[in-house]
Amino acid sequence: MTSRRGFLAGLLAAGVVPKPGWADAGDPAYLTAARLPDRSYWLFGLTETGDELFRLPLPDRGHAAAAHPARPEAVAFARRPGTFAVVIDCVTGASKAVLESPPGRHFYGHGAFSADGGLLFAPENDYKAARGVIGIWDAARGYARLGEFSSGGVGPHDARLLPDGETIVVANGGIETHPEAGRTKLNLSTMRPNLTYLRLDGTAVDQTELDPALHRNSIRHLAVGPDGLVAFAMQWEGDLAAHPPLLGLHRMGGTPRLLAAGDEDHRRMQGYAGSIALAPASGQVAITSPRGGLVQMFDTVTGTCLASHAGPDVCGVSDAGRGFLITAGTGIVSLAGAQGEIWRRRHACQWDNHLVRVARG
Rank of each mutant, 00 (worst) to 15 (best):
L325F: 13
L240V: 06
T327H: 09
N353C: 13
L306E: 14
D319K: 15
A279N: 15
G93V: 00
S218H: 13
I326N: 01
K128I: 08
V98C: 05
G337V: 04
Q207F: 04
H250N: 14
V16W: 01
G135V: 03
G323Y: 09
A85Q: 00
F107H: 12
P226F: 05
D116K: 08
D164F: 03
F44I: 00
T255W: 00
P256L: 07
I287S: 05
T288A: 07
L195Q: 05
D116Y: 12
R251K: 06
G253T: 12
A66C: 12
D51P: 03
E166T: 04
H221E: 08
S289M: 10
T2I: 14
A144D: 11
W351P: 13
P69H: 03
A65Y: 07
R257Q: 14
P59R: 08
V333K: 03
P245Y: 06
G21H: 06
R79K: 07
Q270W: 10
H157L: 09
L198N: 00
R71N: 01
G253A: 05
E48W: 11
L186M: 13
L335A: 11
G238C: 01
G254W: 07
L210T: 02
W343R: 10
R160D: 14
L306M: 14
M191T: 06
T167N: 01
R105E: 15
D239G: 10
A33G: 15
L58Q: 06
G165E: 12
K128E: 14
S308C: 14
H266W: 11
E264K: 10
A64R: 00
A159F: 08
I175F: 02
S318D: 12
N187D: 04
D158L: 10
R268V: 10
H347N: 04
G321D: 09
S318K: 08
G331V: 08
W236S: 03
L188V: 13
A67F: 08
A213V: 11
T83V: 14
I175K: 00
S189M: 11
A233Y: 10
L222I: 09
T83M: 05
A78Q: 13
R183V: 05
G109D: 07
T49H: 12
N187Q: 04
L229E: 08
K19L: 15
F107G: 04
A320K: 01
L222D: 08
A97S: 02
S334R: 15
P244V: 01
A338P: 15
K96P: 00
